[in-house]
């Protein structure tokens, strides 16, 4: 919780109205983004993303599992977010839990697409190994290390970076014949060959925070405390909207919703490019 005096509140709101925010940014510009990949050796892929004072880590763990009987040709992905009490005292106990589940649900909506798999950032059928028998289960875990606003965008970026850092071991099916129907086929997980993950379809999340009449991207915690509502929109490279969710109690006019969508679309183009070059730079640094 941030306690702000009336003066500070007015300063923040006034700054946003005049397109000059407290840290000198314009309404639609981001804080500097810093990405490190491969920060967790035990995971199949991981990344740490820092946007200003917000610091998050995402890791990808892959395990062999059985596909869902309803979708035999697809793997499974689950997203779990942890808001650690080390980041802020309000995350202790239940306070963090509520926020964690909300963030996880929003990320799921924004990254995993519709029921039929349209608009999914991760192609679930690419995770299948033997149809109906063996598939990859991806566990995406996010950790909020320190929070200074804009957590959803940061987590989305971290997951994108972690996925592009992910190498899934090549799996050779040894005995997958019809003779042993019902049994799990024998598989051999290679520890030398790894398959790179295609992350070009993973969307980015752009959160527009509405303060007064204007909206800003990448709000800090102080600015978030002044918001009336916020709209998180996930957009992929093709400019298609993959998910949308609204936070904050205050209602907004339908025309403003549409305007926010088009603003987010413009912002996202730039953001995707920045992220991609940061991820590429991080990968290059890791290889050195």
């Amino acid at each position: 919780m941030v306690g702000l005096s009336v003066g500070e509140t007015n300063f923040i709101r006034g700054g946003i109205a005049q397109d000059l925010r407290c840290d000198g940014r314009k309404r639609l510009s981001y804080r500097p983004i810093h990405i490190d990949t491969g920060v967790i050796p035990q995971a199949n892929g991981s990344a740490r993303v820092r946007i200003g004072g917000t610091d998050v880590i995402a890791s990808v763990k892959a395990e062999l599992g059985r596909p869902n009987s309803a979708q035999p040709g697809k793997g499974k992905v689950s997203i779990h977010i942890d808001c650690s009490a080390t980041a802020a005292p309000i995350f202790q106990g239940k306070g963090g839990e509520a926020l964690s589940t909300e963030l996880a649900a929003d990320l799921q909506r924004c990254l995993l697409g519709g029921k039929s798999g349209a608009g999914a950032g991760i192609d679930l059928s690419s995770l299948s190994i033997v149809e109906g028998k063996v598939c990859w289960d991806l566990y995406l875990d996010g950790l909020v290390v320190s929070s200074d606003g804009n957590m959803l965008d940061a987590l989305g970026a971290a997951i994108k970076a972690a996925l592009s850092n992910t190498g899934l071991p090549k799996v050779n099916v040894i005995a997958a014949d019809a003779t042993s129907s019902g049994d799990q086929p024998e598989v051999d997980v290679s520890d030398e060959e790894f398959l790179q993950f295609d992350t070009s379809a993973v969307p980015v999340i752009v959160t527009l925070t509405k303060v007064g009449k204007h909206y800003i991207v990448d709000a800090t915690e102080e600015e978030e405390s002044q918001m009336s509502s916020a709209m998180s929109i996930s957009i992929n490279r093709k400019g298609l909207i993959c998910g949308l969710t609204k936070r904050g109690g205050a209602g907004v006019d339908p025309s403003i919703v549409l305007d926010m969508i088009s603003v987010a679309k413009n912002v996202s183009e730039n953001f995707i490019n920045v992220l991609d070059s940061e991820i590429a730079a991080a990968e290059a640094r890791e290889e050195e």
Binding site: G113, G114, A118, G119, C242, K246, K265
Partner: peptide, 27 residues
Amino acid sequence: QDGSLMLTYMPCRSEVTQLAVNGEWTT
């Protein structure tokens, strides 16, 4: 479904209180 959209709305004030979209949508 390929995508879903849910909208909650207060007609007299013309305010959208919640909007949830998933799937792949063009503008």
